[in-house]
Each structure stands twice: as structure tokens, then as C-alpha cells.
């Protein structure tokens, strides 16, 4: 039995549409948030969960964390049905909402942690060891006496993480944890998540729009669109399947040179050089290079770095999301 088991999960919402002119009542409209969603996650996995806004990501997280009840389908987390006994279930999970703070705004974060200790009924001993360990790993020791409102965004997110891990959850949901953070904070946050995952085998489900998060952390990616699972596998496979376009930039001694290439290769001038986009499947890289070299005195040839966000955008387009 896998740790998380989801089978044929369905969820629909009824929303009231804006009242149309002339009609007395607002019309109801049914939205299918999740359609026959199935997946399994093993204990200790670190899974990235991506998809455009409104794809059903947060609905899944809400169902898995016991906040929401589905229409039909089976869900078990660690052998339990999340919504059947909410309190028993949430004792074992941790949730971090990226844009909604759970800690108390005006008090030192240590006070917030002490209250969480009472809420989760953590024993003194467990609390002490866990707090020492987490504050060290998250570099929070200096900040424990500072009220949350005086912390920077990155420090706040670290404090939130600490708060949601004090009770040693087996499963951690992270909803866009790196949104708005600077590069250094992002890196240290990822380091920490890796550490937590390796040390305690905490299963982590990460929803994000930041592909760097996925690339750095997740061995497995699930893509959701219109309530359906579109992809489930590792990042490399995803890239292989959708990363179809390569871009090279060529600069010639004579700026007037314009190589003649097959129609499948698109070219555009950019500054001193020319940008060529091609798909290796249609036009082999070797051929493109040969044509570029033959065209004139090639000064410089650079391969543009892959932009993972563009790739995802392309994928969403292709899947018609």
C-alpha cells in the first residue's frame, strides 16, 4: 500500500455567474475541478506538482489535507481517509501556504511556536529537541525574539516552515514556498527542504510555478491541467518530450551576411547577431551548424541557455491549457 493513494478522484464546484442584464437570478455554472485523478506517492518522495492557475492543484492539496471532501474517489494517506477524521489526520501533516501566514503577526516567533506546541500537544522534550534542530537548520536562532512583522520575506518563510514542522509531520504540503524570495533565500530554502526530506524521510508535495524549484528538488513531477493529470514522471522525461526547440546565436564578421536555412528554422536579428530557432528532430543540429559555417566568416556561436519557464509555457500551449 503506497503512502498516498488517490484513485478516480472527482470534484466539481458550482459557481454563480455574474448576473446577466435582464435576468433576475444569477445562473449557476458547474466547474469540474478534478476529473478522475489517480496517483500514488511513496513515503519519502519529493514530488513537484505543477499546472496553470485553476488547474486543480490547490483543490488536490485541500482534499489531501482533509480540509475538503471530494464528490467521489478514494484517497488514503498513511492508511487513513483524510476528511473522515480531520483532527487525527492533520496531526500528521504540515501545510505551508505561500501567501498566507499562519504565525501570529505581532508577537516574537518563539511565542508563536510555543502556542503551536500547545495546539499540537507536543511534549516538552520533543519540542525542545525539534526546535533546536530546526532553528539551527533554518538559521533562525537569532530571530526567535523578533516579532514576525519585522522579519524579511525570506526570514518569514523560514519561520513558517519551522512552525509547520515542529510536530514532525510525515507529510508536508508546500504551496509556492519560494514566491517573492530573493535568490539567496530560495537557495537556502531548497537546501533545507532537501535536508528535511533526507533526514526524516518526510514526504513533500510541492506546488509551484518556479521551475527552478522543481529542477533542484523534485525527482518526480506531476502536471495537472483542467483537473486531469497530464504527465507523471521525472523531470528529464518531461523535458525530452517537450523541449523541442533549440536556439543558437551566430555573429558574422560582415553583419550583412544572412545564411540560407531550411524553412523549418526561424531566424531573427538580435543586436550584432542572428538568432536561429530549430527543432533537432526536423533539422539535425549538425546540418544547422554546417549551413551556418558555410554562410560566411563566423565570429561567434553561442547556444542560448534553456529557459525552463518558456518550455513549460510551450507545454501548456501544446496541451491546450
Amino acid at each position: 500500500m503506497p503512502f498516498i493513494h488517490v484513485e478516480k478522484l472527482n470534484k466539481t464546484f458550482t459557481v454563480l455567474e455574474k448576473r446577466k442584464k435582464g435576468s433576475l437570478f444569477r445562473e449557476k455554472k458547474t466547474i469540474e475541478a478534478l476529473r478522475d485523478l489517480s496517483f500514488d506517492i511513496e513515503r519519502g518522495e519529493l514530488v513537484g506538482y505543477i499546472g496553470p492557475n485553476g488547474a486543480g492543484k490547490s483543490t488536490t492539496v485541500k482534499i489531501l489535507s482533509g480540509i475538503m471532501t471530494p464528490e467521489s474517489g478514494e484517497v488514503t494517506v498513511g492508511g487513513r481517509i483524510p476528511w473522515a477524521d480531520r483532527r487525527e489526520h492533520v496531526r500528521r501533516i504540515g501545510v505551508v501556504f505561500g501567501q498566507r501566514m499562519q504565525l501570529w503577526w505581532d508577537v516574537p516567533i518563539l511565542d508563536s511556536f510555543l502556542l503551536l506546541k500547545d495546539i499540537y500537544r507536543i511534549s516538552d522534550e520533543d519540542y525542545r529537541t525539534r526546535l533546536v534542530e530546526l532553528t539551527e537548520a533554518l538559521q533562525l536562532e537569532e530571530l526567535l525574539r523578533t516579532p514576525l512583522r519585522l522579519l524579511s520575506l525570506g526570514q518569514r518563510m523560514r519561520a513558517e516552515l519551522c512552525g509547520s514542522l515542529l510536530h514532525r509531520p510525515e507529510l508536508l504540503f508546500l504551496d509556492e514556498p519560494t514566491i517573492g524570495l530573493d535568490a539567496v533565500s530560495k537557495l537556502s530554502l531548497r537546501e533545507f527542504l532537501k535536508w528535511e526530506n533526507e533526514k526524516y524521510g518526510t514526504t513533500i508535495l510541492l506546488t509551484t510555478h518556479d521551475m527552478e524549484d522543481i529542477a533542484a528538488l523534485c525527482s518526480r513531477v506531476m502536471v495537472l491541467g483542467h483537473g486531469r493529470k497530464l504527465f507523471d514522471g521525472n523531470l528529464e522525461t518531461l523535458l525530452e518530450r517537450y523541449d523541442t526547440v533549440r536556439t543558437v546565436k551566430a555573429c558574422y564578421a560582415d553583419p550583412a551576411v544572412m545564411p540560407v536555412l531550411p524553412a523549418s528554422v526561424s531566424a531573427s536579428r538580435e543586436g550584432e547577431g542572428i538568432l536561429f530557432s530549430y527543432s533537432p528532430g526536423e533539422t539535425p543540429t549538425a546540418e544547422v551548424l554546417r549551413l551556418l559555417q558555410d554562410a560566411g566568416d563566423l565570429r561567434e556561436l553561442t547556444i542560448e541557455p534553456q529557459n525552463i519557464d518558456h518550455l513549460i509555457a510551450a507545454m501548456y500551449r501544446e496541451m491546450d491549457l
Binding site: K62, I67, V90, R100
Partner: peptide, 17 residues
């Protein structure tokens, strides 16, 4: 504001919280 969700993910009664 959706703050009720934050309450629901904690192992205590809703009204208590």
C-alpha cells in the same frame, strides 16, 4: 479571507481555534 483553511489544518476544534 480563507483563514478558516489555516484553522482546519490544525488538530483542534474549529470553534475553539
Amino acid at each position: 479571507s480563507g483563514g478558516l483553511d489555516t484553522i482546519l489544518v490544525r488538530p483542534r476544534g474549529v470553534l475553539t481555534q
